[in-house]
Design a protein around this nucleic acid. Structure first.
Lengths: 345, 345
DNA sequence: ACCATGAATGTAATCGATTACATCGTGTAT
DNA sequence: ATACACGATGTAATCGATTACATTCATGGT
């Protein structure tokens, strides 16, 4: 007879090492019965149930989910891939995802990809190897694209960013229309010289918002000034400040600036202040997202509200739906945005 | 003979269902050999190794980590419990944790507890049931306290918040000294009427910073005005704004305000602006944390810098250390803070 | 009185890995 | 030539759950 092999990891003898077999022994029943009681599906006599529950109590038993998951091939973990956890926009979406996930008994595995395809791929492997049941991806559609081909059958959904050509459920907003609305608002204030501070065009939203900006100007019969269209590589404050400084250094500086994210816009405000321009008197500024801080700063930021919480909640629900019925149709949803007028423009 | 039972979860026949046994069959070797190749520890002939690797390639095999983790009793998941993911202070700490964890091949399971003991307990169960290898807790020391008794032997560390009486490794800063430094700075500017906007005193840092505030005033020979010491229930902007309004409505309003977090301080700035007070001319404001936005707003916020990134990195390293050698001594570490002078006070 | 019925519980196969121990060759010391 | 050591690989126990099928026993219909 081969002797027992000690388990490498769990050395100590503290609680938590109690298995279902120990409970069965203590209660004087079989493991199957214990499992039935614990999962509460099958019929078990009340008396037996009580014995089992008592044994659970006495031993301080807690289920080993690894074992359960191995057998049921489910981890009850939802992967969430975001380009940047520190960005308040994403943080709020993550909250929405988290709340829906928890309501349904799932935990969220939050991964910061830095919009890096390599990291994203390694996280996706968690899905392939079933360490996670499903995934929500907020990364640039361009990096999704590469993955989509090899992972079309995996249970994941896209949030904010998506490639309409890829058959994956998604939720987002109409970025083109929203951007046009922002620019139209500036036009309505009498501005004609409107700059765009756009982010990395690997992002779908960046390309769509640029289009909205161009459409709005074209509709107003205005020509595009290439030097008023800037692209920055990150969404942080410094990038916005630098872009603002660059615009103000132009021979013909714009009188209004549309920044595609509130973080950029806040940086813009700072950059304008640094070069002595007043907002909104000298230059009007409009942002995008309506993160919480936007209403707090001086001057309060005019912006386009994205329903961040709902975006997250919807993405989670879409994913849960897809997990429940794998064969179902894949809806793509657009949520409404809204212009929030404040003092900055 | 009992016939094969189909697995409930994995119904479809796509890739990812390839097991080590299938690889062994394909390569014409045993599962043990495949495992040895995959883990690269034991001696395997180069020729055999190649056969196995080829089979892995052909079948598109990916390891099922659930199975491996069940056997090795490790999940390579690190739990991180924070009171609020949306708070930029915590977001930056999480980044620090994440970077160290990933460097060591761990994934981070981020959990938003809302400082709620019930939720925290349910997350802690992930540890008990070995779904996570270790945990980092940023929740109030008061909620840690309850858990610590029943979980003293579990592998977790405390970050920012900790109960010195509980034998758990921790990393934080000297909140009392930092708060005293903030108040001393205000005193050095000539302020005598200094208010404190403190957060929920379930948090250790809140109690320690209050102490620092009191010590500094006492050392300066000033008496404490109870009506200048406010406690708010959340760290959001609105709470800060409301508190500022309340202070300014006093018959004897203070000339300086120390808020225990930058988010509160930003709210304070807004609240003061709303009631027509100028910063720093009428009222000086100092915050705490030095989150990124603090330098961007107008006026830029004077504050106490906490090394957020390092706090997270250190917490992760402490945890990894504890996992590596369970019996080791439990260090408690305090990281340096620093006063950042800007325009607000 | 007998058997079908079904409720309650037990037995053991199974998920997919790791790994202790067994086994099988082959080269080398005696 | 025999024995022994060692390198390479195979066999099967094991982690802790779920669950298909078997078994047991009481009840009710005829």
């Amino acid at each position: 007879m081969v002797r027992l092999m000690p388990r490498p990891g769990a050395a100590s003898a503290e609680a938590g090492n109690v298995s279902i077999a120990a409970v069965a022994r203590q209660a004087g029943v079989s493991v199957a019965t214990v499992s039935r009681v614990l999962n509460g599906q099958a019929v078990v006599k009340a008396e037996t149930r009580d014995k089992v529950m008592a044994a659970v109590e006495v031993l301080g038993y807690r289920m080993n989910h690894l074992a359960r998951n191995l057998r049921t091939a489910a981890s009850r973990l939802l992967l969430t891939m975001v380009p940047d956890v520190g960005n308040p926009f994403y943080a709020e979406i993550v909250r929405g995802i988290d709340s829906v996930a928890r309501q349904h008994g799932y935990f969220v595995l939050l991964c910061d990809t830095g919009a890096d395809p390599g990291r994203e791929r390694s996280y996706f492997d968690l899905l392939r190897t079933r360490r996670a049941d499903g995934a929500i991806c907020l990364d640039p559609d361009t990096v999704q694209h590469a993955l989509a081909e090899e992972s079309a059958s995996l249970p994941w959904v896209a949030c904010c960013e998506f490639d309409p050509a890829v058959p994956v459920p998604y939720v987002g907003i109409d970025n083109r229309a929203a951007a046009a609305e922002a620019v139209n608002h500036l036009l309505a204030q009498g501005h004609r010289d409107i700059a765009l501070i756009n982010s990395d065009e690997r992002f779908l939203y960046a390309r769509q918002r640029r289009q909205g900006y161009r459409d709005a100007l074209a509709d107003a019969g205005l020509r595009l000034h290439p030097e008023w269209q800037l692209t920055v590589q990150s969404l942080d404050f410094a990038a916005g400040a630098a872009a603002a400084a660059q615009l103000m250094a132009l021979p013909e500086p714009p009188t209004a600036i549309f920044a595609v994210s509130d973080t950029l816009a806040i940086g813009v405000l700072r950059g304008l202040r640094d070069v002595g321009r007043r907002v909104p008197d000298d230059v009007a500024v409009i942002g995008f997202d309506d993160i919480a801080i936007a209403a707090q700063i001086d001057p309060p930021l005019t912006t386009i509200l994205q329903p961040m919480r709902e975006l997250g909640e919807t993405a989670a629900r879409l994913l849960l739906q897809r997990l429940a019925e794998p064969g179902a149709v894949v809806p793509g949803m657009l949520l409404p945005h809204r212009l929030i007028r404040r003092a900055s423009g």
